[in-house]
Simulated assay, not measured.
Amino acid sequence: MGHTHDGGYAQYCLVPVAKSFRSRPDCPGGIGAVPETLQTVYESLTPGLDLTANQSLLVRGGTSSVGLAASALAKDLGATVLSTTRNPDRAGALKEQGGGPRADR
């Protein structure tokens, strides 16, 4: 949406069936934001930065949804990931993700 099909921010839009999926009834309402987050990260890291294996990426705000997605994609591409967070209590989440820790002060 917004790249090859106009109207991603319209009140109503027509989406090709191939670009849609049915969510389970027990999924939270925020599931609709996942494609937007992943698209933002993908466009930023691949065509935007042309990130490749053996490069390093610093993710500021590494415990945010976009930060976590960026770390996952960068690691998938073979890059070394370093992440920051303002909250030292979240350093464990960065360790689990494999991108840190380094707490901003």
Results as ranks from 00 to 15, higher is better:
103 A>E: 11
90 R>M: 06
41 V>T: 05
58 L>D: 02
94 L>D: 00
67 G>H: 03
86 R>E: 07
104 D>H: 09
73 L>W: 05
102 R>T: 15
44 S>A: 14
28 P>N: 14
1 M>V: 05
67 G>E: 04
21 F>L: 12
74 A>V: 01
92 G>Q: 10
94 L>A: 01
13 C>P: 01
43 E>K: 10
64 S>H: 03
12 Y>M: 09
83 S>N: 10
83 S>G: 13
56 S>C: 06
37 T>N: 14
89 D>P: 00
80 T>V: 15
79 A>D: 04
99 G>I: 00
67 G>Y: 02
42 Y>G: 06
69 A>Y: 04
98 G>M: 11
92 G>L: 06
71 S>A: 14
36 E>T: 13
38 L>Q: 10
10 A>D: 11
70 A>T: 00
30 G>I: 14
51 L>R: 07
96 E>F: 12
55 Q>W: 07
71 S>N: 07
50 D>V: 06
74 A>L: 02
73 L>G: 03
82 L>W: 02
57 L>G: 07
47 P>M: 06
94 L>H: 03
92 G>I: 05
11 Q>Y: 12
16 P>L: 11
33 A>E: 07
54 N>L: 10
80 T>A: 04
12 Y>G: 02
48 G>L: 06
31 I>T: 09
37 T>M: 12
68 L>N: 02
34 V>M: 11
8 G>C: 09
79 A>Y: 03
6 D>T: 14
105 R>H: 10
28 P>G: 15
101 P>F: 14
40 T>F: 09
104 D>A: 14
27 C>K: 11
77 L>W: 06
65 S>H: 05
29 G>S: 12
73 L>E: 01
84 T>G: 05
75 K>G: 06
63 T>L: 09
43 E>I: 00
84 T>E: 02
23 S>M: 08
33 A>Q: 06
97 Q>C: 10
37 T>V: 05
49 L>I: 00
100 G>D: 09
1 M>Y: 07
105 R>N: 09
93 A>G: 02
51 L>N: 03
28 P>H: 13
30 G>P: 04
88 P>H: 12
81 V>G: 03
60 R>V: 14
85 T>E: 05
23 S>Y: 04
89 D>W: 03
14 L>T: 11
89 D>S: 09
72 A>M: 11
14 L>V: 12
103 A>T: 10
24 R>N: 10
